[in-house]
């Protein structure tokens, strides 16, 4: 059957090609996948994170960051200027378009992969830079105890930490994550939307759920919206030559874009 049976233009990306694209995004936009406090992000192109960052030479050539810098982690009950350093990295990202053939989903995500869905396997690494005992003992002496307001009012909220507590190493961990996603079209862009996410083998369940919640929210709000691809770029700027728009969803094109046969497909019409 002709590819353009139901539209004027048709573009498809096989999952293998899409995974190549993801690799290029990860190496050319590393700060989208690597987060840490300022101290761990230095030196700029040799940060001290849990996983070594592979990046494209142009990132350094154009002075782009490798890492998105986050504020220091407040220490509960401590009111001084110090906070804990930490890092969070997405180090692997593999997608598998329906029908699933590259990724074996965990039972929590109800395999097999549903129609029009994408499976994702990733690796999350993170860690906290934990201060040695002698450092914390020294800081105890510097603590400034803010006296209770004699009028009985609450103490003011502590200021956010501005300095890292010195430490020698980051206590790192890496977790495998699995997710299911769907492709949506929004304002001329194609982007991934997270359906479900599962971290493997973490106990207790509450901890696992909390981590999953945090990572899901980061993916939904922070990372995936920034990896959206303009529809025009899916058809290699064909719009520079002819005026096109997404084909409407009909009986012949029930999904646009669609995920099937291990491909992401987009249908467009001339206008």
């Amino acid at each position: 059957m002709p590819l353009t049976d139901h539209s004027d233009l048709f573009a498809s990306f096989h999952e293998d090609g899409f995974n190549h694209i993801i690799r290029h995004i990860m190496t050319q936009r590393p700060s989208l996948f690597n987060y840490s406090t300022q101290d761990l992000a230095s030196p700029k192109y040799e940060p001290r994170l849990c996983s070594k960052i592979e990046f494209h030479l142009a990132v350094q050539e154009f002075n782009n960051p490798l890492v998105t810098v986050l504020p220091y982690m407040p220490i509960i009950g401590y009111t001084g200027p110090y906070g804990l350093s930490y890092t969070f990295q997405l180090t692997e990202f593999l997608v598998d378009f329906h029908p699933g053939n590259l990724i074996t989903l965990p039972t929590e995500l109800n395999p097999p992969l549903n129609e029009q869905r994408i499976a994702l396997k990733g690796k999350v690494c993170g860690g906290v830079s934990c201060p040695e005992r002698e450092i914390t003992d020294k800081l105890i002496d510097e603590l400034i105890d803010i006296p209770q307001d004699p009028t009985g009012k609450d103490r003011p909220d502590p200021e956010p930490p501005t300095k890292p507590i010195p430490s020698r190493k980051v206590e790192c961990f890496c977790l495998e994550l699995y997710a299911t996603l769907q492709v949506i079209r929004s304002n001329g862009f194609i982007q991934l939307r997270l359906d479900g996410l599962e971290l493997v083998d973490i106990l207790p369940n509450g901890l696992e759920n909390s981590l999953e919640c945090y990572i899901s929210t980061s993916l939904r709000l922070g990372i995936l919206p920034k990896v959206r691809i303009a529809l025009n770029d899916l058809v290699f700027s064909m719009n520079d030559f002819i005026t096109i728009a997404p084909a409407p969803v009909t009986g012949d094109i029930p999904f646009n874009p669609s995920v099937s046969n291990n491909q992401l497909n987009a249908f467009l019409n001339l206008i």
Binding site: P2, L3, T4, S7, D8, L9, F10, A11, S12, F13, H14, D16, G17, F18, H20, V235, F236, M238, F241, I242, I244, L270
Partner: peptide
């Protein structure tokens, strides 16, 4: 192939 981009005869005419 990783990518396929198909243009109908109408799109080609465009």
């Amino acid at each position: 192939a990783h990518i396929n981009l198909a243009a109908s005869e109408k799109a080609f005419k465009g």
